[in-house]
Computed example of a mutant assay.
Amino acid sequence: MARPMNPLPNTDTHTADPHDRKLVDFAHGLRTLREKAGNPSLATMSQRSGVCIALLSGAHGGHKMPTWRTVEGYVHACGTDSAGWRAKWERLQLAQRTARARSGHASIVRNWARLRYITPPQWPMNEAELAEILDQARRFRGLSLRDMAHRSVGFSHHTYGAVLRGDRPVTADILLAILHACGAGPGEVRRWMQVLARVRPTEELRVRSLLAKMPAPRASTRHRAGPPGRMSGGRGGSMGGDNFRGAPGGRK
């Protein structure tokens, strides 16, 4: 007979946050699956799945995100098809990553406030995280989507919204337009463009083309963000000219 499982973490306290609650809900689902399978012992489940007892116990513990291999073995040991659980596990993984990203975003914003200019974070990002952090930059500058469309000609507020929500990809042209609207300086633009080239290698050639049109950064000058709508730097004191529009032609 299987030993009783330890109680799940309490999500009703003021210290519980949303991603912890989702983790506990996922663990509860695994426990329910095990009970429906006749409550096999962890030793039996380990033999059936090839997953060690400690990992199986941790999967329904509700304290730590289990790997897909562990979940797959757990579900298989309960005699259930794992296909439906893959989507559940991926949703939980996304919630966990989002929660960590929000925590990281707070430190980024504090850094922007301290330095007075917007620079990309140092850790590796994916496309979704890049869009989220760019949206943080927009909010940090106090800009609405319509403000951005007015300050950086070439894209409509609908397009900015779709990109910053992650519904459309971040391209080199729209990244330049977003940074222009946020008042980023040339040094900041170069850093963000380099990040984009890493995140989306298909944009690397366009990134190089746009950077080639920019004035070379001055080693002795530290660029700080100017007022929204202008990018300080260059011989004329402004980088809001044709070379730094979000995209040629009309709004998109």
Rank of each mutant, 00 (worst) to 15 (best):
E188S: 15
W89Y: 13
G246V: 09
E127F: 10
I108M: 01
S144I: 06
R100Y: 07
L130C: 08
T171L: 12
W112L: 12
H105K: 05
V199F: 06
A87F: 04
N243Q: 12
A162R: 15
V189Q: 02
A172D: 05
R224S: 09
R21H: 12
G236I: 10
V207R: 10
T159Q: 00
F140N: 04
L175I: 07
A225K: 09
A219R: 13
A99D: 11
M239K: 00
L196I: 03
N243V: 03
H76Q: 08
T119R: 04
A181Q: 01
G58M: 14
A87E: 11
G183K: 10
G237A: 10
R224K: 15
G29P: 02
H63R: 15
S107L: 15
D20Q: 15
N243P: 10
P4V: 03
R206E: 13
G234Q: 02
T221Q: 12
R190T: 08
H76M: 05
A83E: 02
P18M: 01
V153A: 09
R168I: 00
G29R: 09
G38P: 06
H14D: 04
I118E: 06
A181P: 05
K36T: 07
D25S: 10
L56P: 07
V75E: 02
D167F: 15
H158A: 14
G249M: 06
R222C: 14
A131V: 00
D242T: 07
R86P: 00
S41G: 04
Y117I: 06
R138K: 13
H60D: 14
S152C: 01
L42H: 14
G249A: 01
